[in-house]
Computed example of a mutant assay.
Amino acid sequence: MEIREVIQTIEKFAPLETQEAWDCSGWQIEPKGDLAVEKIMLCLTVTEDIIEQAQSSNCDLILAHHPLFFIPFSFNKQIPIYSAHTNLDKADGGTTDTMIKLMGFKNRIKVGDFLRIVDCEITLENLIFKIKKALNIPYVRVVNPKEKNKFKRLAFCAGSGSEFSSLALQNGADVLITGDLKYHTAVESDIALIDVGHFESEYPVLSVLKQLLSGTVFAQEESPFKTY
């Protein structure tokens, strides 16, 4: 497959023009000409280790979720790098939709560009069980837990979704499932919040990219946060 065909496939699924104004999705390191692509490395965040993995695996392209401005470092420019960030977050079937699907929820409602709503009666215990099983994580952080009552409307935002707690409340949600919750958001929140982790909530979308493209391999990467 030619590299332009790879990018056309990605941008058909997650159009580049839908990215946020502050974002810099697209080419991070541009290729020299229309190269043939046999192997693509998929990752959330490009690091020097990821580049070394791509080189040792003879990859022709690195396809990342996060643009390079999130990780300033010196890098080898021999391998083209392409990022699909907020355009992939917004896409139907993108980061948040993938997380919801993994948890077994259906009939999601799109609110704005990033937030998704699901109507479902579920206890906190069962919701946490679904989250931990779907994302393969040992724990979550919970704010304002409803220990005895059932949640009726769930809001989701993969990645960093603290800013959408008010929007979730305005749309009748009684819990927001996201990552990167901020302290003051937690203190001021009038709804329950469940922090599943930034990396953990976004990583599953790489499997969607794998289904779209041939010749892909997953980089070996993990959340930088460790629990003891």
Results as ranks from 00 to 15, higher is better:
1 M>R: 08
5 E>A: 15
7 I>H: 10
8 Q>V: 12
8 Q>N: 13
10 I>L: 15
11 E>D: 15
14 A>R: 15
17 E>A: 15
17 E>I: 15
17 E>N: 14
20 E>I: 12
20 E>T: 09
28 Q>L: 14
30 E>H: 11
35 L>R: 14
39 K>N: 02
42 L>E: 06
44 L>N: 00
45 T>G: 02
46 V>P: 08
47 T>P: 10
57 S>R: 15
57 S>A: 15
59 C>A: 15
62 I>T: 14
62 I>P: 13
63 L>E: 11
63 L>W: 14
64 A>E: 10
65 H>I: 13
67 P>A: 12
68 L>N: 09
69 F>S: 11
70 F>P: 02
74 S>V: 10
74 S>D: 11
76 N>S: 13
87 N>P: 08
88 L>V: 05
88 L>I: 04
88 L>K: 02
91 A>P: 08
91 A>V: 07
94 G>V: 06
96 T>V: 07
97 D>A: 11
98 T>I: 08
99 M>C: 05
99 M>R: 11
99 M>T: 04
101 K>P: 06
102 L>N: 11
103 M>E: 06
107 N>L: 10
109 I>P: 04
110 K>M: 13
112 G>E: 12
115 L>E: 09
116 R>V: 07
117 I>V: 09
117 I>Y: 05
118 V>N: 01
125 E>P: 00
125 E>I: 03
126 N>C: 01
126 N>A: 01
127 L>Q: 02
127 L>F: 04
128 I>S: 01
128 I>E: 12
129 F>H: 07
129 F>M: 07
132 K>L: 11
133 K>I: 11
134 A>G: 10
136 N>L: 14
137 I>P: 07
141 R>D: 07
142 V>H: 07
146 K>A: 07
148 K>E: 10
148 K>T: 09
149 N>I: 03
150 K>R: 04
156 F>N: 00
156 F>T: 00
161 G>E: 00
161 G>P: 03
162 S>Q: 01
163 E>V: 00
164 F>K: 00
168 A>M: 07
172 G>P: 13
173 A>I: 08
177 I>D: 07
180 D>S: 08
180 D>G: 08
183 Y>L: 08
184 H>S: 00
184 H>R: 00
185 T>F: 06
186 A>L: 04
189 S>V: 01
190 D>R: 12
191 I>E: 02
193 L>N: 01
197 G>P: 03
199 F>E: 01
199 F>V: 03
201 S>D: 03
203 Y>A: 06
203 Y>W: 09
203 Y>L: 09
207 S>T: 06
207 S>A: 04
211 Q>W: 00
215 G>T: 03
215 G>R: 08
216 T>E: 04
217 V>H: 04
218 F>M: 13
220 Q>I: 13
221 E>R: 09
222 E>L: 02
225 F>S: 01
226 K>D: 05
227 T>K: 12
228 Y>T: 04
